[in-house]
Write a protein that binds this DNA or RNA. Structure first.
Length: 628
RNA sequence: GCGCCCGUGGUGAAAUGGAUAUCAUAACUGACUUCGGAUCAGUUGGUGGGGGUUCGAUUCCCUCCGGGCGCACCA
């Protein structure tokens, strides 16, 4: 934490002159030429009743540099500090090492300066994400969910938390019933044959199971629109009742179709390498959920309306989001958004008037189970913004039920992914399905890779193209603030140049290439500290190099900020800037061809950049390639 | 109607209330006998309108205009 040290030194200098400042008062100047850290003097000048410019002049004259601070300068109303480049570089680069040779998918965490520590080590946090519906394939929105959830999980882990990843399959209810009804009414009579086991059943389908099931769902929606079929909705509702009543025929059909969808979805999850420690199915939770509803009914917390539906009303003003106890890096999630302010929340139905369960019913059973079984200190729901109100209601219900963990629930919300022509709708076929998008990107990446490496074997080619393709989507979805909606423009989203995942991978691969060459030419870095040229800076460090070193020094605080804000886009922007800065340096400064000790210094520098890129990309769920 | 989120170059995005609003892309112009051209350098172009708070506003407040979402016995 070199920067913390620098800030401390600056504050100490200021303190001597009776200037009380906090680390947060120190800002980075807009142009690195101006200085390394800066203190705006407006407030202080007002207090002392002099012009800020004069105050800056005076302080610059009277204060003496110390510690890591080399110089102080007045620049208008700002007091700028320059650090001792050699000292800082030494601290940042004392771990020179020749290229990490881990290939793709290596689990090795780079010993980046991020430090884990800081956070309270004993946090046990559950991250619920993806949560597919068993009537359709995963689409672009699920991808955003999965990568955001996974990235935030990794960020939290980097701060010392233990993350339990989970997924709730919405495998029962009205949606799947609609698909079942369509299949029942209009589907092929004996297809696939009943002797097929559910697990193997995909092989007998004309296509991937989830893609097959959704067609029946869409067919239902289309026909339900027409007037002649106006009772279709009621029939679907009846099917839900039959399912809950345990009707054998209905259960068999459900098992078959939900199974097809499940197989297909799992295949996609495997492809995007999203894994869970435990998995829940709504079909196994609704009964327990009904019990919770009954208990609430007995206690008078829930009530039955005249139609027989069970609902909860929130008379009291909606609970204000309270900061999580034991605040720090991990606690203090951003305040909940959405819903209703001031007055009460609108009532929420928990059980239909025909007694069947809905989505909320299962959440009522699942959440206490999560906290009990996994001894959670905190639980996060990674769910889209359109459910802001629902989650507010859910958390308010937990409060009414007086669970002691009711303040430890957090909604990780994110904006819609829309197409240029508007919202994605499964019903209308205007969805970007995850499988198709990944295939398309894979094909583009394969072509590009093949152009450059004619002799590459098929398996290598495939693996590389897949990593590059996934880097492209992952980066594209994580580079913007989670809260803002994304308009998915295929043209721009499929690009591999500019501010993209492949650009970062390319930068990484270039550094890897240089370090490989250094190794084969035996230009090993002298790692013994006493002899290492980089422990003794007798040569000037250029502005380019210095900017890179300062950027590297900021990495830890970028991570803590991204974790606190639940916003991986901070990290994405940082990594892009680092890569850009490296490219600038690379164009202007020879590395292998420069003389010692500059060469060793530059090798150590790019090695540190490489590690930071790898670690940072890993936190963004992106894997690197050594060549591309 | 009520509530939440959001309006930044043609397009997509940055900017804890701080210095000359930063990038990408598109368009145009350049750079490979050199450590990888999926790269780099350059040119053109911008804070929805109006008030307010402040030494200072893209940022905070009010208002108008425009967009997205929610207010389901869907998830």
């Amino acid at each position: 934490m070199v920067l913390n040290q620098a800030r401390k030194d600056i504050l100490a200098i200021l303190n001597k002159a009776g200037v009380a400042a906090t680390p947060a008062d120190l800002v980075f100047p807009p142009d690195p030429q101006m200085g390394d850290l800066s203190l705006p003097l407006f407030a202080l000048a007002k207090e002392r009743k002099i012009a800020p410019g004069a105050l800056a002049q005076e302080l610059a004259r009277t204060l003496k540099p110390a510690g890591l601070v080399e110089r102080l300068e007045a620049a208008g109303p700002y007091l700028n500090f320059r650090l001792k480049r050699g000292e800082v570089a030494k601290m940042m680069l004392t771990l020179p090492s020749i290229p990490s040779r881990q290939g793709r998918g290596s689990k090795t965490k780079s010993p980046s300066p991020s430090g884990r520590g800081q956070g309270r080590g004993n946090q046990r946090i559950m991250m619920e994400m993806v949560s597919p519906n068993n009537n359709k394939p995963l689409h672009l929105g699920h991808l955003r969910n999965a990568f955001l959830g996974e990235s935030v999980a990794r960020l939290l882990e980097s701060q010392g938390a233990k993350i339990i990843r989970t997924c709730l399959f919405n495998d029962r209810g009205l949606a799947i019933a609609k698909a079942m009804l369509a299949y029942k009414l209009w589907g092929p009579p004996n297809f696939p044959s009943t002797k097929d086991k559910v697990k193997r059943v995909n092989q007998s389908l004309p296509e991937k199971g989830d893609h097959y099931v959704v067609q029946w769902y869409v067919l239902f929606e289309q026909r339900a629109k027409s007037k002649e079929q106006s009772d279709l909705q009621k029939q679907a509702e009846e099917l839900v009742r039959l399912w809950e009543a345990g009707d054998k025929e209905t259960l068999a059909l459900w098992k078959k179709m939900a199974g097809w969808a499940l197989d297909g979805i799992n295949e996609t999850l495997k492809r995007i390498e999203i894994k869970f420690n435990t998995i829940y199915y709504e079909s196994e939770l609704w009964k327990q959920g009904k019990k919770v509803v009954e208990q609430g009914l007995k206690k008078g917390i829930f009530k039955k309306d005249e139609s027989g539906a069970v609902l909860v009303e929130f008379d009291s003003p909606s609970p204000q989001p309270s900061p999580i106890k034991g605040e720090g890096v991990i606690g203090n999630p951003p305040p909940l958004v959405g819903g209703v302010r001031g007055g009460g929340l609108p009532p929420k139905v928990l059980l239909r008037s025909d007694g069947t369960a809905i989505y909320a019913t299962s959440d009522l059973a699942l959440t206490p189970e999560k906290f009990r079984k996994y001894k959670l200190s905190h639980s996060i729901w990674c769910v889209g913004q359109e459910q802001d109100l629902y989650l507010k209601q859910l958390f308010a219900i937990f409060k009414l039920l007086n669970y002691k963990w009711s303040d430890s629930c957090e909604h990780l919300t994110y904006g819609h992914v829309a197409l240029p022509e508007g919202r994605m709708k499964t019903r209308e076929g205007t969805v970007v399905e995850a499988d198709n998008l990944l295939d398309e990107l894979h094909e583009l990446a394969r072509k590009e890779t093949q152009k450059r490496h004619k002799g590459l074997g098929r398996e290598n080619l495939h693996a590389r193209a897949e990593t590059i393709a996934q880097a492209a989507v992952r980066y594209h979805l994580l580079r913007v603030d989670p809260k803002s909606g994304i308009q998915f423009d295929p043209q721009q989203s499929l690009a591999f140049t500019g501010d993209t995942g492949p650009y970062l991978l390319y930068t990484y691969a270039r550094i890897a290439s240089i370090l490989r060459k250094a190794e084969t030419r035996n230009l090993k870095l002298e790692t013994r500290k006493s002899k290492s040229p980089i422990t003794n800076f007798q040569f000037p460090i250029s502005q380019n190099e210095w900017t890179l070193i300062l950027l590297l020094a900021r990495f830890p605080e970028i991570i803590t900020q991204a974790t606190k804000d639940r916003d991986p886009s901070h990290l994405a922007k940082y990594l892009y800037k680092l890569a850009q800065q490296f490219s600038d340096f690379y164009e202007n400064s020879p590395i292998l061809k420069s003389a010692e000790p500059i060469r060793s210094f530059r090798l150590a520098l790019i090695s540190a950049i490489q590690k930071t890129l790898k670690h940072g990309l890993h936190l963004l769920t992106i894997e690197t390639v050594e060549e591309m």
